[in-house]
Amino acid sequence: MDAIDVYATTGHLLRIGDMFPEFTFGPPNENCQASLIPGLSAILAALAASCDEPQLWALWLSGQLLKHGGWCAVDALLTGETVLVLERARNEDWSWTVDDLP
């Protein structure tokens, strides 16, 4: 088992089937190695507490949710708003649908 599989099976990385969505990786570090978006594992744990559908987590993370004024979790994480994203993930009621995405 390689490192990426360990991260996925321990809940630190989003896996959908055999795929890992590109948006879950931040910019490469100084050694040109991929890095995870800061705070991703805590966000995934919060989302998993209320929904057991990784596909929905992916939509929630990458979509611009009209429910939140077009806000996008991945963009917020990349700008350091981890606390806001974690708060929204913990309070997600999954009342939105794909129709709520622009």
Rank of each mutant, 00 (worst) to 15 (best):
D75S: 12
G63L: 08
Q55T: 06
E87Q: 13
L66E: 13
A34M: 13
A42P: 03
L47I: 09
A42F: 03
W57H: 15
R90T: 07
G80A: 07
G39I: 00
L65P: 10
Q55P: 00
L47N: 01
V85G: 15
L61T: 04
I37A: 03
L77S: 02
V74H: 02
V74Y: 08
E81V: 09
W60Y: 09
L84P: 06
L59N: 13
A34K: 04
A73I: 01
L61P: 06
P38E: 05
I43T: 05
Q64D: 13
A89G: 03
Q64V: 04
S41Y: 07
S35N: 10
A89C: 09
Q64K: 14
A76M: 11
L40A: 06
D75K: 06
L44F: 12
S35A: 12
G80S: 05
G69F: 11
H68Y: 11
A49H: 11
L86W: 05
R90F: 01
L44E: 14
A48R: 02
C51R: 12
A48S: 09
L65S: 12
G39L: 03
A46K: 03
L84E: 15
V83P: 00
D75F: 13
A89F: 00
L86R: 06
Q33M: 13
H68L: 14
L44V: 05
L61A: 07
A34Q: 03
L40I: 00
S35R: 14
L78N: 12
P54E: 10
L56T: 02
L44W: 12
E53N: 15
L61F: 02
A58W: 10
D75Y: 13
G39R: 00
W57C: 03
L56E: 12
E81R: 11
G70I: 09
L56F: 10
L78A: 06
T82D: 03
G63A: 15
T82Y: 06
L65G: 07
G80Q: 05
S62Q: 09
G69S: 14
T82C: 06
D75W: 08
A73H: 01
S35E: 08
K67W: 00
E53K: 12
S62N: 15
E53R: 15
L44R: 13
A48E: 02
L44I: 12
H68D: 11
V85K: 14
A34E: 08
D52Q: 13
W71M: 05
E53Q: 15
W57D: 00
L36I: 02
L56P: 01
L84S: 11
R90E: 15
Q55H: 07
L84R: 14
L61Q: 06
L66I: 03
K67R: 15
C51L: 01
E81C: 11
A45I: 06
G70P: 06
P54S: 08
L59M: 12
C51N: 15
L77P: 02
L65A: 12
L86F: 04
